[in-house]
Design a protein around this nucleic acid. Structure first.
Lengths: 398, 398
DNA sequence: CCAAAACGTGAATCGGAGT
DNA sequence: CACTCCGATTCACGTTTTG
């Protein structure tokens, strides 16, 4: 999948970034959000304090490559609180930021931030949202209504979920992420090959098994209390960013919290822009991210997908002498035979055409990849003509 | 959880049912739906031909214990069709019943049938709906808006999903079920202990690993073609009905199709009411259900699901921190060295790939089990990376 | 007759560059 | 924008055919 190199604003922003990942970012002067000026350059690797909708509305349009959002879940917990079997209290999410008066109010909020985010996204950008059954259906519907195009829903299967203490329901052992492009026609980034290779050469599925954020990774204050109630595991963010962004890309997180998106983005050589209303969360995030080191560019380099490699015409393979004009090619099982012409076409009887056309013709199929279909005899063995192409690609200047 | 014994109409209906599962049902005379009379008794273990909304509106209020619904998904597939890598065509769901002109039209349809179903449900009844990312967010939002109370969202993880043939997305390897009670105050049925006992004494989680409906179970016509494009596996229905209904309960399925709900209900000693528009589907369902025998009440207590052996990708081992990105792995004799990448691939010089591919490459072999070949240094000793995988398998739910 | 290989298939929102 | 052409792309099962 090609990265969206053509988006003008984003390309400009990225070109300001040095190879080391250090960039000259727009100064933040501690002004209240309402009087901050429209930034001429993107506030890269910064945390914008204040309401995320206002903050996003001040960013230039079409300027970020990806959005990761972990919005309030609109949990509808009773007043009484939940107790464990030993009568201890469960530290539930009861923060003010998770209070909405109704589904309608939550919908208004959801549509507003999704709309603001969409303006800031480049045409080929994608967005991730995570949620639970309390809010994810509202979010998904809003996404579709606003013109986003859902690419996958992803299930984060928790290795160690909180049990259901009352025995009244199934253990709530997963959360849902929605991955969507800005529009149906977006040419989004997806590192299919890298994900497949990291999954023992099988396609990565829509169900991911990842532990909760606990232990060392979980941010705690001086008293040992968790700083944020819903801190997400870095592994989850890492998989999303590895899949859907390139090194140097800009990732926007409207609900930055304690900065997991920023931490992972920095480690993986991506840039982030965070919005966070709570200065305490933002301060924790800033300190956390300062301690992160970017991995070496060597370990971040992506495998080049086949379709991005330079195109080599079959004629060049003939011209280079790997295959000779007049020679006969066959398929792997020697069922069909065709003759190589000096102009790089194949002929079989009166029919003539490209390696693909003739391959399709003899098999009676609508299409065929001639590179993998046709073989030449070399020392008594059949060699796929794609091997010659691979060989030529290895040569500099090919 | 108490079963809804108090609901008056349902109790009456249930008392008419003999122990054998044979019941004296209201006569169906092949009348068109519009002239059928309001049944005085529930049409138990019957299939009502025609539009499900009209059919449900003719049933008495507060009369069923559970609803299972597999509505149209509103897939929005392109004109072109999808080909597999071998150029054969994918047999897509292109039936008329899955065609809607817009999200708005689909929403209207969804709200209408959910509203009709809710009237027929007893106060303590629950409803299951299955869907994919195409429709499930619309369904979930509508549920919430109509006053249903979501209890869980359940992920059906498919053992053998269709792959993504173009390498453009994550393999769509799951579907989502929503389980909701009629209202927040419903005292619904949930067989917590039975499910736990059938799950190696662990609480049943919200992610279920179940194979597709294939082989013998899949209904075929004389020509060997599948009768229905989206027949659901009986194992899926069995788990929902075992969890949320009691023997003798009445289960309503507004989109009966080829009758999986009816077949499983009968086998498990529950009653069904099916609505189906297509007489061909209904006829197939009727024949299918006639061949089902109800299990003995003794064996009903034992029906339990199995847990699958987890496959753990190397990426998960990296994400879990057992192996660090950037770390060097070697073989047992320290002849070869490779670097771990954050996406779960290994790299060695310019070459890169899965643990298996790179293991094969350095040894010059056609294949290699990377799990047993590669080792990490831990406290001066080499530890096989397979040990980390074994460690992770110990986690419940993996 | 048995083992191995080949074949069929499942709710799918599944190109992109060049002309 | 429409059209042409290159050429990349699949996993787990169950069934059927081949050796």
């Amino acid at each position: 999948m090609a990265s969206p190199r053509t988006a003008v604003v984003g390309a400009t922003a990225r070109n300001q970034v040095s190879r080391t990942g250090r960039i000259a970012s727009a100064p933040r002067m501690g002004l209240a959000p309402s009087v901050q000026r429209l930034p001429k350059t993107l506030p890269l690797d910064e945390i914008l304090i204040g309401d995320c909708i206002a903050a996003m509305d001040r960013l230039p349009a079409s300027s970020v490559d990806c959005v990761f959002a972990d919005p309030p879940y609109n949990l509808q917990l009773g007043e009484a609180g939940l107790t464990r079997p030993d009568q201890s209290m469960v530290d539930a999410v009861d923060d003010d930021w998770d209070k909405f008066s109704s589904f309608s109010a939550y919908d208004d909020f959801t549509r507003a931030w999704l709309k603001s985010a969409r303006r800031v996204m480049k045409p080929n950008a994608t967005l991730w949202v995570i949620g639970s059954y309390h809010n994810i259906f509202r979010v998904g519907s809003a996404l579709q209504d606003l013109g986003y195009w859902i690419l996958n829903d992803i299930v984060w299967r928790k290795a160690n979920p909180m049990p259901n203490f009352r025995g009244k329901r199934f253990t709530n052992a997963h959360e849902t992420l929605i991955w969507a492009s800005r529009a149906p026609e977006s040419k989004y980034t997806f590192h299919y090959d890298a994900l497949k290779a990291g999954n023992e050469d099988l396609q990565m599925r829509s169900d991911w098994f990842i532990p909760l954020c606990t232990g060392e990774e979980r941010l705690k204050d001086e008293a040992g209390r968790k700083v944020h109630p819903t801190q997400k595991p870095e592994a989850l963010l890492a998989r999303t960013l590895l899949a859907a962004t390139n090194p140097g890309d800009v990732v926007l997180d409207p609900f930055f919290g304690t900065g997991t998106t920023g931490a992972v983005a920095k480690r993986l050589g991506r840039h982030f822009i965070g919005c966070e209303r709570d200065p305490t969360y933002a301060a924790a995030a800033r300190a956390r991210i300062a301690g992160i080191e970017t991995l070496s560019s060597a370990s971040l380099a992506l495998a080049t997908p086949k379709r991005a490699e330079p195109r080599i015409p079959f004629l060049s393979v003939v011209e280079a002498g790997h295959v000779r004009a007049g020679e006969t090619l066959t398929d792997e099982r020697r069922r069909f035979r065709a003759t190589v012409r000096p102009d790089g076409q194949l002929s079989i009887g009166p029919a003539m055409g490209s390696i693909h056309k003739v391959g399709a013709l003899v098999q009676g199929l609508p299409a065929c990849n001639g590179w993998t279909f046709w073989h030449a005899e070399r020392g008594g063995r059949l060699v796929c003509i794609d091997d010659f192409r691979t060989q030529m690609r290895g040569q500099p200047g090919a």
